[in-house]
């Protein structure tokens, strides 16, 4: 039953997070329309410029381990959202919501991370610039 619950939970996450959001990523490598949520085990926390990177292992339904890398913004920016060099330690079980790259590699940009304590850290997803619309309010 636990397994059914996990499958149900994962499906809910993927389906709900696939709804169009107001914010879209601006990096050409990413598929900004789809977000996924995965549970994994932290293997490295790279707290550095130009972007911090959280690496974590995810075990799929077949027992295969996939090594994911998910980026945030730089430490200066992330500090303002409560992230620190010690936000993660090796072995932490985390739940990561992210957008992923178009080429199918296990690379993402973090939307948010839930820590083992239940605390949620918000990422910084750069929105995609929408096509120019003459009806938009003028200038910024």
């Amino acid at each position: 039953m636990k397994r059914k619950f996990l499958v149900f939970f994962t499906l809910m996450c993927v389906s709900v997070l696939s709804l169009p959001l107001s914010a879209h990523h601006g990096n050409a490598a990413y598929d900004t329309e789809n977000k996924i949520t995965l549970k994994g085990t932290v293997t490295q926390w790279f707290w550095a410029n130009p972007h911090c990177v959280l690496q974590f292992d995810v075990t799929d339904d077949h027992g295969q381990v996939v090594h994911w890398g998910a980026e945030t913004e730089n430490p200066t920016t992330m500090t303002h959202s409560g992230w620190t060099k010690t936000s993660f330690k090796l072995g932490d079980e985390v739940t990561v919501t992210m957008i992923t790259v178009k080429n199918g590699k296990p690379i993402g940009r973090i939307v948010d991370v839930v820590l083992p304590t239940g605390q949620k850290l918000a990422g910084r997803v750069i929105p995609q610039l929408p096509p120019y619309n003459p009806d938009d309010p003028p200038k910024q």
């Binding site: 709900v16 709804l19 107001s22 995609q128 910024q140």
Partner: peptide, 29 residues
């Protein structure tokens, strides 16, 4: 997950560029 979406939909109008320039740092105190 839906509640932030609802908030976003009632936000005052903002130009597309302004949204992009500020959204990366949304919630930035």
């Amino acid at each position: 997950i839906a509640s932030p979406l609802a908030r976003a939909q009632v936000a005052p109008p903002q130009s597309a560029t302004a949204k992009v320039q500020t959204a990366a740092t949304a919630g930035h105190a």
